[in-house]
């Protein structure tokens, strides 16, 4: 199975049906698979903050979500995470496609990527990097389960080591 197929499988096992996202090129196979599968309700948002709000409302209404974005999108989220997800104890699970490293060609992406893990650590948000195919199932599944059990956000970072990333 590809990393995208494994993630779809893990989402289904964990009853995650709602996938609001802002697209990223590397995420295309996952977005395509989710959009083609009637198990999921997937749609684009205009901003990543919006996706956090939607996932929070859906969680309170009894529906689980995964939100998808790229590194630059994560950089717009500290306020939404620090004011909504963390203090209200709403488990927002994020999957971030990692730009800005291992062959990045855009200096802006490289700089914004440097802010991601420090922000996650500052907010004490559990995060793991998916770099190897044989670890995707375990890390994704356990990150979702921990987020739900502890009622805290969790973040999965999709490394170019796994996806090939985006190159010139």
């Amino acid at each position: 199975m590809t990393w995208a197929e494994i993630i779809v499988d893990v989402l289904k096992r964990n009853n995650i049906r709602l996938v609001p996202y802002v697209p990223d090129n590397v995420l295309t196979p996952l977005i395509k698979a989710i959009n083609e599968d009637p198990f999921f309700t997937a749609f684009t948002c205009t901003r990543e903050e919006e996706a956090v709000g939607i996932a929070a409302g859906a969680w309170m209404g009894g529906m689980r979500s995964l939100i998808l974005m790229q590194t630059s999108g994560f950089a717009t989220l500290p306020n939404a995470l620090a004011s909504l997800s963390v203090p209200f104890q709403i488990p927002i699970v994020m999957l971030v496609s990692e730009r800005g490293t291992l062959g990045e060609f855009n200096i802006g992406q490289a700089l914004v990527a440097k802010t991601m893990r420090p922000v996650l650590d500052a907010l004490a948000i559990e995060h793991h990097t998916l770099a190897r195919l044989d670890e995707v199932d375990f890390i994704t599944d356990r990150t979702i389960k921990q987020a739900v059990a502890t009622q805290q956000p969790g973040c999965l970072i999709l490394s170019p080591q796994l996806t090939g990333g985006k190159v010139l």
Partner: peptide
């Protein structure tokens, strides 16, 4: 009633997520 604190602009997205999760309400 849900009282959102501090997340300026997110009342509509929160309401949309809830409306999707509970279409009968």
């Amino acid at each position: 009633n849900f009282y959102m604190l501090g997340s300026m602009g997110l009342a509509v997205p929160i309401a949309l997520g809830l409306a999707i999760a509970q279409p009968e309400r």
